[in-house]
Structures are given as C-alpha cells and as structure tokens.
Design a protein around this nucleic acid. Structure first.
Length: 933
RNA sequence: GGGCCUAUAGCUCAGUAGGUUAGAGCGUACCCCUGAUAAGGGUGAGGUCGGUGGUUCGACUCCACCUAGGCCCA
C-alpha cells in the first residue's frame, strides 16, 4: 500500500526519438538542400571522386531554348538524372554536360513577331542579336528549372549550339560532309510568298478559306498499246481526266499519277472515252455512264498522254498519296510545285520544273502565259483549255488553303535551289543501316523504327531561307555564277566563326571571309557573293557529338547513351547518326534509350484546348519536385506515361510511407553508434539475420533494375520492402524488444545493427530517385559516412543464401494464420490488442516439432503474449480458425495467461511476483536492472 | 492512309519458355492500437486480362482483324 502511486514506466522505455520531421515540407526543404549543395560545390566533389573510374557518358540531347519547361522536359531530364546518379553510385564516372538548341525558326519567328513592322528597319545581324539574347534568356530560365528538380550536371559549362565554338563546329562538320562528297545543290518546292518574296516554313503558314477554280482537265492519250489492249475503245478519242484547283500549275505539268491499287475505268461519255477511278465515276460524270473497260492503276502506269495545251508528253506514274476523296483518282503532277509531285519527280527522274519567278510570275519560257502573275493566269489557262477543247468542267470551290502568316496572301509552292546531303553518295544510307544494327536500342523496337526511316528517307534538305542559324558556307562567283563549294574554304571560315561566331558571315565582307587572292577556278575572277541560306537546325544538333564529346577528354565518343523521347528517332538520333556516319563512319552512340510522352488521366495528349494541361511549377509548388521524380520513377516510360491528381496523390502517400520508414529507423537508432555498438554478423539474432537477408534480396533486385533501366521496378520494390518486410513484419514485431529491453542489451543492439544497415542501404538505393529526401535523411544517419549520400556507393547485396527462405516463409505462413484467427476474436470483441491473446496451435505431427522449435519466433512475429502447442483439437469452436492454407492446422485464440505488464504490455505469469515492481513482469524487472534474462 | 508503340483490379505495376482458383503495393470497406500518432497494425471486397474471331487438349501469354490512345510520316 506504500506503492500507491503508479510508477511512470514509460520513461524507462527506449522510445524512438528524432528531429527529422514527419512532414516533409518539400517545397521548403528542397531549396534548402539545393542551396547547401551549391555552397559546398557538391557537383565538383562528385566529379573529383569519379576521377579514373570507368566512364559512362550519357550525352544530353539539347532541348530548344524557348519557353518554360513542361512535364516532357521533366520526364526526360529526370530519367537522365536517375541514370547518371545510379551509374555514379555504381562506381562509374558519369559526367553529364547539359546542352541547349538555340538556333532556328521558333525563336526567329517570336522575335520578328514581337518586332512587327519594325522588322524592316533591322538588319539581319540585329535580328540575330535579338534571337541570341532571347535564347540566352530561356537557357537561364530552363537551367534554373532543371536544377530545381534536382538534376545534377555541369550547369556552369553547358553547351549551346550558338556558342562560337559550336557554330564553328557546325561549319567545319559541313566542310567534312562536303569533303565526303555528300553535299550537293538541287531544287525542291517550298512554300513561297510572292508578296514578301520569301520562302516560308511550315510554321509560318496559316490555313484559311480560299475561293479557287475547280476544273476537270482532259489529257489526250498518246500510247497506242492501251487502245490495242482494249479493242472496244479503239476508235474513240481517249483521255485521262484530272482535277485541279490550281490551274496555274498546269504549264509545269510533267506527269500524271494513279494509285496502283485502285480500279480505274474507261467510260464512254459524250465526245470520248475517259479514264478515271471507278469509284469516282458517278461523282464526276454522273450516274449511268457506260463503263467500257476496267483495269488496275498499275496496269496503266507508264502510259503516255499529251499535255492539254503543250506539245509535250505526260507520263502516268504511281503514287500512294492518290486518294478517292475528291477529284478523279488521277492527279496532275508538276514536280516543281508540290510536295508529292516533287517526290514523284525524284522517283521518275523528272525535271523539278517551276517556271515561276520570285514575284509569282511565269518566266519568259512559258508559252502563252509568260509574264503573267500566276493567280491572274488561272483564267487565261482555263480559256486556253476551252480553246483546245480539253476542259471538261469548270466550277468554283472554297477550300482551306495555306496563306502567308505576315501578309495574309495565299502562298504558292515553288521549287527553288536548295542544298542536300545525299543518302546514296558514299553509301551513307547503307552504312547508316549497318551502324543501326550495332547500336543497342531500348526498347528494342526502336531499331526497327529508325531502320525503316533511314531506309526510306529522301536526301536530306539542309538549307533554310532564314536568318537565325549557321550559314551554309558557299560562295558564288559574281562573274560566272560558279558555285565555290570548297571544304578548305569552309574550314577557313570555321576558324573565323570560332573567334567571332557565325555573325561574322553577316558582318564581314566576302573578301574578309576568304583567304586573300581566292579566285574563281572557272573564270579567275576574284569577286564573290555569299550564300544567304542557313543550315537546318537538325544539322546543328546533329554535330553535338563533335563539339561536345570529341572536344572534352572527360567525355567519350561514341557516347554510351543517347536518351530522348521516341519522336527523336526522326529527330536527333537520326540527324546525329547521319552526320556521324557520313563523316566518321560510325554511330555516335552505343545505346539509345527512348521514352514515351506525357498524357493525361485518360491517356490523351495534353492541350490547351482540352484544358488538361498540368505544368511542373504547379506540381512543385503543391507537392514538391521529389514527387515529380517519384512519378518519373514509378511509371513505365517505355509507353506513354499518364499523370493526374489521383496519380500524384497516390505518390504522395507512397512517399510518406517511405519517408516514415526512414524516420522510424533513424528514431530507433538515436542511441546507436555503429563504431561502438557494431556486432559481427554471426552474432546477430536470427530475426535480424533474416531481415538482412530480405534486404539483400531486395537490394539485388533493385540494383538489377537500375542496371536494366527499369526504374518502376526500383520504385515498387523499394515501396514493397518498406511496407511489407519492414514496417508490417519486422519493425512491428521488434517494437517490444526495442522499447523495453535495456539500451545496451545484446538483442536490442543486434536489431539496431540490422536497422542501421537497412537504413544506410535504403537511403543509398533510393538516392537517384529521391534525390532530396535521401540527402535530408542521410544527415540524420549515425556513424561514419560520406558528406553527401550522392558521394556514396550503392550497397553490396552480399551473398544471398536460400537457407532462410524455406524456414521463414513457413514461419510467416503460421503468422498469417494466427493473425486471421486473432481477427475472428477481435471482431467478436473477445480481444482488442493482439497482446491480450494467447494462441493455441494444433497441427499434424511433422509440423509440430517445427512449431515447438520456433515457438518464441512465432510469438514475436504474431505479437501475441503467449503461444502453445496443443495435442488435441480444441473442443469448442470459439475463435477457432481451421486453416485453409496449412493442411490440418487449427488455431485457437484464448485470453493470454497471466496479467498485463504495466511496462511492456505483454501478459505474463510473472506479473505481480516481484514485490518491488508488483505491476510488471520478470522480463521488465530484469531490463530495469539491466540484466539479461 | 502508312510505319512503330500501348491497352492486366479505382491508381501504379508483376505475370518466367501458353498449363492448377491471374499476383503486389496503394486506395477502399470494416476492425484494432494510441509507446512511429496529421503515425502504426489486421482482415476483407475489387480484374477473366481493350473487343471479336482463330490456332491449341489448354491462351493474359501465339495469329488475324477491330476499337481506343500515343509518336512519326503522308
């Protein structure tokens, strides 16, 4: 009765303790960590500690320096970052040099748009200066945004395609292409504005409705064989019938095109026999028109017709683009005035004929119409067709037609001189295909995709009629128009670019760009003019391997990896391959990894009009960059990857669980110092050896997943391990020991040893993904350690022995069955806490000894106060589980014998036996006295 | 229109070379704990594998077609 006041046993426990906050507050924590990294120059330290190790070079594909980053950028850069970090932690030297693509139309377009009419007052050089500063601004913006999401790299020394040195490289690589003999000048139709007298890019064209003539034109048959093949129409006049809305292109007609797979007919109609697609006959000639013959498109391929008003042949070609939507199924082909027409022209070796000048007027060679403006000429041409009786029908049609973005006039298609890289010369195509085969494509279908693109692509048109880019270094003789296309001259100019940038092309006089006394090899004249075209920006980025990889001894050529979205099979992977094979005879990469695109909840593309756009800054603000990183890791990037608030909310839950697991481990290690309290593996408790074994299994799986670039496996395994193995099994069952055993007791230290290894391993394994949190938690980890988790190496999974698996899966199976039985009792309010229960197990003979041998482990794993084996099945059915999993197993739940210990809450027979501590058990008494029991 | 890709529980993913009642975590429902507490634990309910047809003794897994979505072309 002297002991009336209850002793506060809670204060005698070793409860978890830590300053690490449960709430992450990522939006605040992340910038703090970033600042700290910056102050300590972490990236430089990583570089230093990587010296001499095997290299793994991921070469960055330069994003376009325009606008803020979107989720696609995040996906791309975070994937790269995970790889670079995981390679670094695997003991490799993975130097990452980010880059930006700076030249090109979008920036020029934006700048000139902002200038408006003032554009006229600016020189090319001035416009280029504005473009340069525009790009510079967005490089800085994007750099900060990439750093904010935790991407490591040499942000102080990125490569920009507008660096003087880079521009010089673009020029010199052009020189190399020239040297190889792949560079040539040809003609190709481009969008042309006759009003602005300039070529337009796709993006500078706006589609608007336009009223055009719609005419059906007859091409008289020349080839006699066709008549012979179809004797029934021998005596008739035969025509191919075409339809067009651009009569002005008829003077440039050189061919007709049919679809080889369509059925065509010869139809008897009024004055003659017309050939057209069967399906369109009613639409064009009316119902009831008599069909005389039928044949396939390919049957009339090669047949010759006469031009409707010139004394010239027009041959029938085959084109897959011919459709049955409109017209007659036969398309008039003017290779100088249309994209499809051009392809046909190339394929059939026709002249790329475009007798229209830059003002949109027919040149003097055009009979009947010379000097006429094309749109005015439409009516003259129609008149002419009527005169020669080759016009079947004339109508008017309103249709969507491209217009100039600036002057709003309808554009024309017009072939102009352009520069090309030949696919055939120097066997560029076949060599590229061979190289594709040598590269590892991830996923493997990437190989087939780029292969068929390279296999089928036409020659690469690399000239652009723009200002913001690197000029095509070619000169023209003022006297004789000789094209001075000399690699040595290009290398000379490249040197100038190296010092002054490619602006020099626009600032300096021709003479200053050429070595003194350069003379035309044709006529000896020394006066030249500069080419005004610039290079395609795909050529710019395509030479990055040369400027970045080959120029820096810390990097490697070929790169170990290029990693971009799957659209780059036609973009950067493609152009880099062609330039590298064309000049080096090898691919610039050993492996290429592609990812899909970010789509919404429904798997649909994000767009402003759909209103389903999610921007990174909002995610960072609301959830933190870490959640964005976790998202990248959790999704399988090989297909399209979805994002939604539900997905993000799930990830936040998942993040919390991982963070809390880390926190709990740290909190239980607050009195642990591995330097003093370390225990040899062999001396550890069995359960601790088991959890370390599970850690080894997980580690192996995770490391393998990093190796295979399957980060979603890393995420799932990390999460699973934390939740299942650790939180719900190991940690929950260790609480009793951790809290109630005296601080330095062997069992407690054994557990702490295991937890220490687990914590250290998990932090490291998660570091490439949870870049910030791993660092934050790392600081709380006891013991000797590197200054930053990002300077540490991945853990070694060790030898994984199977000895545990069999025994422990059996133990855990008993645990499962006991938990089910407890649930029956709990739902009936027979027990509440599992410690109130004492469990009786009845089983077959062979299992009986196993259970007896492991009675204490089973008790600990089930977190009950008492477990016993009974020899006969229970007589009553209260709280009895007849196991459906383990044959013959019966589990019965009773109240645990003894009283509840005030200190450890376990029910024990010894409670009340000690006069000094009448309310606690013998185990707790021993622990209070720091004795082992 | 063509090439390539994707389609498994509400969400994110597994499912080895075709073979017993398709797995996991989350979420959810119900319950417990209050010594990880804006935490922790337990039990349960959710898919017939986008659809159709075929091959096979047997298919989520092979073939064909279709649908939806994505990338790149036209």
């Amino acid at each position: 009765m002297a002991k009336e006041k209850t002793i506060d046993y809670k204060s005698t426990l070793n409860l978890p303790k830590t300053d690490l906050k449960m709430k992450a507050n990522l939006n605040q924590m992340e910038p703090d960590i970033l600042r700290n990294w910056e102050e300590n120059d972490l990236y430089k330290r990583i570089r230093q500690s990587s010296k001499g190790k095997t290299k793994f070079i991921l070469h960055d594909g330069p994003p376009y320096a325009n606008g803020h980053i979107h989720l696609g950028h995040c996906l791309n850069k975070i994937l790269k970052d995970i790889i670079v970090k995981s390679k670094t932690m695997s003991g490799m030297d993975s130097y990452y040099v980010p880059g930006w693509d700076c030249h090109g139309l979008p920036i020029e377009y934006q700048v000139t748009k902002d200038l408006g009419p003032k554009k006229q007052t600016k020189s090319t050089y001035e416009i280029r200066q504005m473009c340069r500063s525009y790009a510079d601004k967005f490089v800085n913006i994007q750099r900060d945004e990439f750093k904010r999401i935790g991407v490591f790299g040499d942000w102080e020394k990125p490569y920009l395609t507008m660096d003087y040195g880079y521009e010089a490289t673009i020029a010199s690589e052009l020189g190399n292409v020239m040297k190889s003999g792949n560079f040539y000048r040809g003609k190709k139709p481009v969008y042309w504005c006759y009003h602005c007298q300039t070529a337009l890019a796709e993006a500078e064209v706006e589609y608007e409705d336009k009223l055009s003539p719609s005419i059906y034109v007859k091409f008289p048959l020349i080839t006699e064989e066709l008549k012979k093949r179809f004797p029934t129409i021998e005596r008739k006049k035969v025509f191919a019938l075409i339809w067009t809305t651009t009569p002005w292109t008829l003077p440039a007609n050189l061919a007709l095109a049919v679809n080889p797979d369509f059925t065509y007919v010869a139809a008897d109609f009024e004055d003659g026999v017309y050939i057209l697609a069967e399906e369109l006959i009613e639409k064009v000639l009316g119902a009831g028109t008599r069909i005389i013959e039928k044949f396939n498109g390919k049957d009339i391929s090669g047949i010759k017709f006469k031009h409707p008003f010139y004394d010239r042949e027009s041959i029938v070609t085959e084109g897959d683009f011919v459709t049955l939507d409109t017209g007659t199924g036969i398309v008039h082909i003017a290779p100088g005035h249309g994209q499809d027409d051009y392809e046909i022209g190339k394929k059939y070796n026709l002249d790329i004929y475009a007798p229209v000048d830059e003002r949109g007027e027919f040149t003097k060679e055009v009979e009947f119409f010379s000097g006429l403006f094309v749109y005015d000429a439409n009516k003259n041409i129609i008149e002419k067709l009527k005169d020669v009786e080759n016009l079947l029908k004339e109508e008017q049609l309103t249709h969507s037609y491209p217009h100039c973005w600036r002057c709003k006039n309808p554009i024309i298609f017009r072939a102009t001189p352009q520069w090309f890289i030949s696919m055939e010369e120097n066997e560029l195509r076949s060599k590229s295909l061979r190289e594709i085969d040598e590269v590892k494509w991830i996923p493997d279908w990437g190989k087939e995709r780029i292969y068929s693109m390279i296999e089928n692509r036409p020659d690469w048109c690399v000239s652009r009629q723009r200002a913001w880019g690197v000029p095509i270094v070619v000169f023209y003789c003022k006297e004789c128009d000789y094209v001075l296309e000399d690699p040595e001259l290009v290398f000379h100019v490249s040197e100038i670019f190296n010092r002054h940038g490619s602006d020099a092309w626009f600032n300096l006089d021709v003479k200053e760009l050429m070595p003194p006394d350069t003379a035309c090899p044709e006529c000896g004249n020394k006066e030249f003019v500069k080419e005004t075209d610039i290079l395609d920006v795909w050529f710019d980025s395509g030479v990055s391997f040369s400027y970045v990889l080959e120029n820096n001894p810390e990097l490697n050529m070929p790169a170990d990896m290029y990693l971009e979205g799957s659209d780059q099979h036609r973009g950067w992977f493609h152009s880099s391959l062609l330039v590298s094979v064309g000049t080096r005879n090898k691919a610039p990469y050993n492996s290429v990894l592609t990812h899909g695109f970010v789509v919404d909840k429904e798997g649909e593309k994000m767009s402003k009009s759909k209103g389903n756009v999610i921007v990174p800054s909002d995610i960072i603000k609301k959830y933190g960059a870490e959640i964005l990183r976790l998202w990248v890791s959790a999704e399988d990037y090989r297909g399209d990857i979805r994002i939604s608030t539900e997905i993000l909310d799930r990830l936040v839950e998942s993040y919390r669980k991982i963070r809390n697991t880390f926190r709990y481990l740290i909190a239980n290690l607050n009195d642990f110092d591995p330097r003093k309290d370390g225990i040899e593996y062999n001396d550890l408790e069995e359960i601790d050896k088991w959890i370390l074994h599970k850690l080894g299994v997980s580690t192996k799986k995770i490391l393998n997943a990093y190796d295979q670039y399957e980060f979603h496996i890393v995420y799932h395994e990390l999460q699973r391990f934390c939740i299942v193995d650790l939180s719900s099994i190991y940690l929950d069952s260790q609480k009793d020991l951790l809290y109630t055993f005296y601080t330095t007791s062997k069992k407690r230290r054994s557990s702490q040893n295991a937890m220490y290894v687990i914590l250290s391993s998990l932090i490291k394994l998660s570091a490439p993904i949870l870049t910030f949190t791993s660092e934050e938690v790392w600081r709380y980890m006891p013991g000797d350690k590197e200054e930053s988790v990002h300077l540490s190496a991945f853990p070694d999974p060790g030898d994984i022995s199977e000895e545990f698996e069999e025994k422990w899966s059996k133990l855990l199976q008993y645990r499962d069955e006991i938990l089910k039985a407890l649930e029956i009792a709990r739902n009936d309010k027979f027990i509440r806490s599992s410690l109130e229960a004492g469990v009786q197990i009845y089983s077959g003979d062979e299992d009986k000894s196993f259970i007896l041998d492991n009675l204490e482990l089973i008790r600990v794993l089930s977190i009950v106060s008492h477990v016993e084996v009974i020899n006969k099945p229970p007589t009553d059915s209260d709280y009895v589980l007849n196991s459906s999993e383990i044959n013959g197993l019966i589990v019965k739940v009773k109240m645990a014998p003894g009283e509840k210990c005030d200190r450890c809450w376990t029910y024990r027979a010894s409670v009340g036996k000690n006069s000094t501590y009448p309310t606690i058990c013998d185990r707790c008494v021993a622990n209070l006295e720091e004795r082992d029991i």
